[in-house]
Structure formats: C-alpha cells, structure tokens
C-alpha cells in the first residue's frame, strides 16, 4: 500500500500536469479559431452523448498545419531558429572550450573557486543577465563608448535589436552549461596520455587535436546539446535583444498566443517545434547513456 502511494503520487501528478496538457495542446492544434470563450472550436460536449463525441472528432482537421506550411513566416522562423541556435552553439563551444581547458589545467587548490565562479552566474536571474546586455549594446551603450574612446570606430554601431545581439545574449547566458560538462571530461583525462603522444613525436598542437579533443568528446556533445536545445525555443533573448527582423519560433508562438489570440495556430507551432526537438533530445539522451555506461 505504501509502495503504491509512493509511486502513485508523483506518477499521477506528472500525468495530470505534464502528459494531459500535451494531449490538450495536440487536440487544440487540430481545432479552428473561434470568437468565443475559449477561443477555439469544437469543444467536447458530453451532454450530447455519443453524437457529441462524434461531432467533436469530425470537426478536427490538420488545417493549422497546412497553414503553417503555406505562410512564409512560420517555416522561416523555424529555419532561422535552427540557424541561430546552431551558430550560437558553435560560438559558445569556441568560447567555452578554452575556459574549461584552462580550468582543468589550473592548480588543484584553485579549482573549487573557479567552479564556483562559473556556477554563480547560473544561480543569478536569467532575465537580469540578459537585461545587463541592453545597457552595454545600445547606441550610447558602454561597448560603443569604449570602442569610440579607443578610436576604433567613429560612429556608434547598431548592435542592440539585431541578430548579433541575440548571438551575444545566448553565448553569454548559456556559457556555464558548455563549460561544466567539458571541464568534467577534461578533469578526468589522464595527462600521461598527452605526455605519451608528445614523447612519440606529436607537437603540442597535434597532441591536443589527436588526444585531448577526442577524449573530451562526450563533454563537448553534452555541452552542445545543453546550449542548443534551450536556444532553439528561446523567447526572452530574442524579445529583449533581438529586433523586428529577428525571427525565432519561441517569440512567434508567444505572439500568436498573446497578441493574435490564435490558440489553435499557437498549439500547432508548439507541436512542430516539439517534433523538431525530438531528434536532438534523443541524441542527447543516448550520449548521456553512453557516458553513464563508460563510467561504470
């Protein structure tokens, strides 16, 4: 009985508040928009009995999904989200790897402090960290002031409200997610392997490419997924740092829901986004499993 309760309570909580909501999203994505409360049709009418249920199912269709393929906005937003997420993951990797590498090579007694310095921003509000860049990247912001003071530019650059600002924002906020798994992989790396490679005639650089990088592969994969997956559905960064030209699907979904009040289309957008995310999520899961097996 106790065991049953122990399993049932979290189980039913997740069924009711995680799985059922998805079924509802799926159902509404097949419905049509209506000027009513709730603003979609059909709604399931049990009082009409079997006929009501039949009428309900016959009114569902894939019209919203067809609509998504017809209107340029949506598939452009999906493509541009994928592109932005991909590029920013690559930049985050390029920025994060040297930091993780240096941390793993730092004196033993520094490492806990360095770790804490990487984790601290993660505990700080995400919103505030994005906001901090608004004051830096604006026309009269610190970056422009600094560059003009150095004499590199004469005119202030427009960075805020462009895609560049979105890249900077994603790299900045997700950097700790990239550093930590790579650091964990490099920390475990047996240094004598690199020495052996060097003894056998590798230059330092080729020892790095041929030994260090392949051995930290799992950390690179984990870090990249941890950046890519949330970046794809990101809403806060494109809406605060991006401009009107920044197309990201998280923002489109938000506007479809809150501004256009088109719930069926917003639901269809969500279903397609999930379908796209399934691929990286499954790859990520497999990578984690492989790592867990390697550790055992």
């Amino acid at each position: 009985m106790r065991r049953f309760l122990l399993i049932a309570v979290p189980y039913f909580w997740l069924l009711a508040l995680f799985l059922v909501p998805f079924v509802i999203v799926f159902k509404i994505s097949l419905s049509d928009i209506a000027l009513a409360i709730p603003p979609y049709t059909p709604t399931l009418d049990f009082s009409a009995g079997w006929a009501g249920v039949r009428a309900f199912f016959s009114a569902l269709d894939f019209e919203n999904f067809t609509w998504l393929t017809q209107d340029d906005l949506y598939w452009k937003a999906y493509l541009s989200s994928l592109w932005i997420a991909l590029i920013s993951t690559a930049i985050t990797l390029a920025v994060g790897y040297p930091i993780a590498y240096a941390m793993a090579r730092a004196p033993e007694e520094w490492r806990p402090t360095l770790m804490m310095l990487v984790i601290l921003p993660f505990w700080t509000s995400f919103l505030i960290r994005v906001y901090a860049w608004m004051g830096i990247l604006s026309q009269e912001g610190f970056l422009n002031q600094f560059l003009m003071w150095l004499g590199i530019i004469n005119e202030p650059l427009t960075i805020l409200n462009t895609n560049t600002a979105v890249y900077i924002g994603i790299v900045y906020t997700y950097l700790p997610f990239m550093i930590l798994p790579i650091y964990a992989a490099l920390d475990r790396l047996d240094e004598s392997l690199i020495e052996a490679a060097e003894d056998l005639g590798c230059s330092r650089l080729s020892a790095f490419w041929l030994v260090t990088v392949p051995l930290s592969r799992n950390g690179i994969a984990a870090g990249s997924f941890l950046v890519f997956i949330p970046a794809l559905g990101e809403f806060v960064i494109p809406s605060l740092l991006g401009g009107s030209g920044t197309l990201m699907i998280g923002k489109v979904l938000w506007e479809e829901f809150f501004s256009n009040r088109d719930w069926p289309v917003a639901s269809a957008v969500a279903i397609i986004l999930l379908a796209i995310l399934v691929i990286p999520i499954v790859l990520f899961q497999r990578n984690q499993q492989k790592q867990a097996e390697a550790e055992q």
């Binding site: 508040l17 909501p21 998805f22 509802i24 999203v25 949330p230 794809l232 559905g233 990101e234 809403f235 998280g250 979904l253 938000w254 829901f257 917003a266 639901s267 969500a270 986004l273 999930l274 995310l277």
Partner: peptide
C-alpha cells in the same frame, strides 16, 4: 522549451 510547457499548462 518553456513556451510549450507554459502554453500546455
């Protein structure tokens, strides 16, 4: 993605 969790709830 948070937008999906939020919408579905």
């Amino acid at each position: 993605p948070e937008v999906i969790t939020g919408l579905s709830l």
